[in-house]
Design a protein around this nucleic acid. Structure first.
Lengths: 253, 253
DNA sequence: CGCCCATTTGACAAAGATCAATTACGGTGG
DNA sequence: CCACCGTAATTGATCTTTGTCAAATGGGCG
């Protein structure tokens, strides 16, 4: 793990098996990760970006607060939570990341990570060394702009989270959460109405600025009202329209 | 305003008055805006980035939700608030920007702005066209990396705001707010203990996820405890140590 | 099969919101 | 220059939402 196998990626167009396995151009997440409208030449360059993948077992950290920054990570499969903490020990989940999502952008500012990313499921990420990302970006404007879009997307997402935490009440928060999750699952080809929650009530609570009991009660309330069906981690959205009414806010999801 | 005067910036080293007035290299905010360790050549290139400044009167919007994105703005002087809103009319202030701060990064993602930026004081901003920023970035790696740091800084700042909104109580929120403001004023050469608040109690409340009455009461409480002195918009921090204790969180400010 | 942890649910407490009244301030016009 | 007006701020009384504490139930994993 500490001595990652150097994938033998050459400038030549000879594509060996190892390369093919890692190439962005052959990854089934490429619509989520890669900019559109690339020339063949651009694609070859971008494929050089990722030469390492990393496996993180459930419960392990991908990055910790204070870690030296060197790479951005793209989730290939699995599920992560990212969190920051107060100096008296409380912590706050700032996001849940699934396939196609990017982790580690917080590290660029000071060269140290300010948050922790922990795998909630067995996971795999693509390692994108920042230096190389910037190098290739200078060469491939489409990648450059795409990377800026990804950072901007994170800013917009956090804006929405601030809106949620600053001005919504518990029912609105949970309804927004469910609808947002549903949309993200849909865009990844999963069912948008039936889902298995990867996180605990406590983790949902931390993310939404609520206590776990409040999350549980609100789930039960939604179930009574016929909006959803809940059985532990399994949730079925029965009335998306009704949920949207509960979540009066954030129409942009 | 719609036909911006093209500042006559030439490749030659002849620097006319107009150019000098706009040049980043001669701006007294350059420590806040510009990367360090630039060559003379780099500086000439970066000076081409900003060819327009824009004046925004108190109460006017710099950008509105839905506006087409084309530029990032750096605040030169004055004071802004940025906000997002729920579709039932409530709105949430996501940040206050003062000189050296950057506005508009949210627009990169979709080419449309998702938030509004409104001047709280008469203000002036430097307009940085995104296209030109990316162009020059490709040429000047130090600028490229610096821009990435600025976006990362915004992500980290929002993380801290999420931490505040998600897991701090009212006293902690207000104490954090005051200490943070104090630090930002200090880094701009102002007094870190005496300040004139540019925003109303309601705006502070929106930013902190509290009602204006709660903000007012908490100010009064801090004053009773001898931590601060408050007289309307004038605030003096008497006991920074004590305030830090109140704001147990976010040691990174 | 049993233990441990997650979840649910209930009763009560507390923080902050809401409603309302009063005071202070800043800008404007006489 | 001063009085007046409208907005901002303060303060009090009460109510609502959510947090806290506690107990019971249910599932998953070894």
């Amino acid at each position: 793990m500490n001595t990652p196998p150097k994938a033998s990626v050459e400038k030549s167009s000879v594509i060996n098996a190892e390369h093919l396995k890692l190439a962005c151009s052959s990854c089934n997440l490429r619509e989520l990760c890669l900019p559109m409208g690339l020339t063949q030449e651009d694609i070859v360059k971008i494929d050089e970006l990722i030469q390492i993948r990393k496996t993180i077992k459930k419960g392990e950290s991908l990055i910790r607060q204070g870690d030296l920054f060197h790479s951005i990570y793209a989730v290939r499969l699995g599920f992560f939570k990212t969190m920051v903490n107060t100096d008296d020990g409380r912590d706050q989940i700032t996001g849940f990341q699934m396939s196609g999502d990017v982790i580690g952008l917080d590290g660029i500012q000071t060269d140290f990570h300010t948050c922790e990313a922990l795998a909630i499921e067995d996971s795999e990420v693509c390692v994108m060394p920042m230096e190389r990302l910037e190098e290739i970006s200078r060469d491939v404007p489409a990648l450059q702009h795409h990377f800026h879009k990804i950072m901007s997307r994170e800013i917009v997402r956090e804006n929405e989270q601030i809106l949620l935490l600053g001005s919504m009440r518990s029912e609105e928060r949970l309804a927004s959460f469910l609808l947002n999750l549903s949309n993200r699952l849909k865009s990844r080809g999963f069912s948008q109405s039936e889902m298995i929650l990867r996180m605990t009530r406590e983790e949902i609570g931390s993310y939404l600025g609520l206590k776990l009991e409040t999350v549980s009660r609100t789930f039960s309330k939604f179930a009574e009202e016929g909006l959803i069906r809940v059985q532990q981690k399994a949730v079925i959205l029965l009335d998306t329209k009704g949920l949207s009414l509960k979540a009066k806010a954030s129409p942009l999801d």
